[in-house]
Design a protein around this nucleic acid. Sequence first.
DNA 1: CAGGATCCCGCTAGATACTG
DNA 2: CAGTATCTAGCGGGATCCTG
Lengths: 150, 150
Amino acid sequence: MPTMTAAQKRAHAKADYDAFLAECPSRKLLDRISDKWVALVLAALGSDGATHPGRDGTGEPRAMRYSELSRRLAGVSQKMLTQTLRSLERDGLLVRTVTPTVPVTVTYELTDLGLSLHQVIRGIKRWAEANMGEVLSHREEYDSRAANET
Amino acid sequence: MPTMTAAQKRAHAKADYDAFLAECPSRKLLDRISDKWVALVLAALGSDGATHPGRDGTGEPRAMRYSELSRRLAGVSQKMLTQTLRSLERDGLLVRTVTPTVPVTVTYELTDLGLSLHQVIRGIKRWAEANMGEVLSHREEYDSRAANET
DNA sequence: CAGGATCCCGCTAGATACTG
DNA sequence: CAGTATCTAGCGGGATCCTG
C-alpha cells in the first residue's frame, strides 16, 4: 500500500500559509525548525562540517547512528537529541532505521524533504561561523558605548 | 574617530569557528539567530512577505517603525520584540534611529550584515510556508501509525 | 547500543502596569 | 509612540537512573 496518498497532500496544499500570522501553522513550524539542534542534526546528516573531508558541501545525505550523532553534536543531551530526532522523523524530514543486530543498530538519514530543508538551513550555520568575528566586534562596540553613557 | 578599527575585526577573524563544538561562540550565535522572532523581524525589514506588493523578494531593505513591526509580527509581545531588536542591534544586524519628533519616532533598518543574514534566513520562512502541507501529511501518517500499535 | 522515564531547576515568554 | 519595569507560570532542557 502507498504510505502517502496524493489526496492527503493535496488536502493541505491548498492553503496559503503566512508565518507572519500568529494562528498560522507555519508559524509553529517556523518555530520548530528555528532550533539550534535541528540545524546541527541536519548539518550532520547532510554531511556538512567535513567529518569526511571532501564530502563537505556536496549535499550528499549521510546515514548516521545515534551514538555518532551524539558525539558529533558536542554537548547535546540524550533527551534533546532523541526529542529532536523524533520530531524530525514525525515531520518526515528523516527516516529512522532499526537493524536487529545485537546490540541493536539504529541509523538516521535525511529524506528528500529533509535534504531540501538542509540546503537552506546549512546557510544559517555557515553564516554564524563566517560572521562570528564581525558580530563580536559589533558587540564590543555596542557594549563599550553603553558603558560610556550613564 | 572610526567607530570600528580594522584591527578589532582581524582580532576575531582569525579563529575558525565550528558550531558543532559546544564551547564555540558560533554555537551560541547559531542559537540566537535560530529564533522565530529573529526570522520574522529580518523577513519584515527585508521587505519579505509583500506588505508592499511588488517589493517582495527584491531583498531591498526597508525602514520600519516599532509599531509597524509589532503589527506585522502578529502576536509578538513588546518584550520579545524589543528584546529581539536590541539583540539584533547589538550584533550589528540592524540600526536603530531615533527622530526627536513629538511623540518620538524610532525606525529600524537592516545593515548590510543584517541583509546578508536575511538572505539566508528568508529561505527558512519560505520553506516552512511552502512545505507546511507535506509536513502535516507526514505527521498524520506518523500519528496514525503510532495509534495502530499498542 | 539506543533510548525511555523521572525529577527538577532555571530562564524566559507573556501579561500587566507604568513612563518620557 | 516606544518603550521600561516587574511578576509569575510554564516548560525547555539537563541530570540521573533504568531497560530491551
